[in-house]
Design a protein around this nucleic acid. Sequence first.
DNA 1: GAGCTGACATGTT
DNA 2: CAACATGCCAGCT
Length: 85
Amino acid sequence: MQHNSFRENVLAVVRNIPKGETLSYKEVAEVAGNPLAARAVGSIMRTNWDPDIPCHRVIRSDGKLGGYNRGVEKKRQRLRQEKAI
DNA sequence: GAGCTGACATGTT
DNA sequence: CAACATGCCAGCT
């Protein structure tokens, strides 16, 4: 199975995150198949500009939001709308 | 084709 | 308490 890259896997996982729920970069990396690739997940999300992939639902394990392509403020607002952080 | 950087995490110094 | 070092993947120079 070499068709599915780690990138595609991560994107699929994030896309499957239900509304009102948040996953940490590490959790996503774990489900994607690499518990040590939390950093890679961030890189992938950064270059991913897809409305089908709610990257704003991916936050840090520390409980902080982390970053966002369109601005951390936007990420915070979106989470506020969905899960009222 | 090789090296550096980056939306992270964890352990050690 | 903070800074440094290591591990992973993708993208850019």
